[in-house]
Amino acid sequence: MKEEKKEFETEMNKLENIVTELEKGELSLDESVKKFEEGINISKECNKMLETAEKKISILLENDGELQEDNFISE
């Protein structure tokens, strides 16, 4: 599944780095505010990714040599 969209894992790593950087307290106030905003935005995006994940249980069946995706109904 290659997607151009942001990877959850990368975003989480970014978020973690921002939090650690901000916690060090070495940034100027201006930079701190910028980092804070960035962090909050990323965290919101991460939450969104969790909420908007596609919900689907499907089965791939071969049909004339082509794979077709159908809803999977467990017996």
Partner: peptide
């Protein structure tokens, strides 16, 4: 777990910014 982790990060962001502002 993930949602909890994210909210912990948010909390940490808020705490450290508050601290920064207080220091300033």
């Amino acid at each position: 777990d993930l949602e909890y982790k994210i909210s912990t990060y948010q909390q940490r962001l808020k705490t450290s910014l508050k601290k920064k502002v207080e220091l300033a």
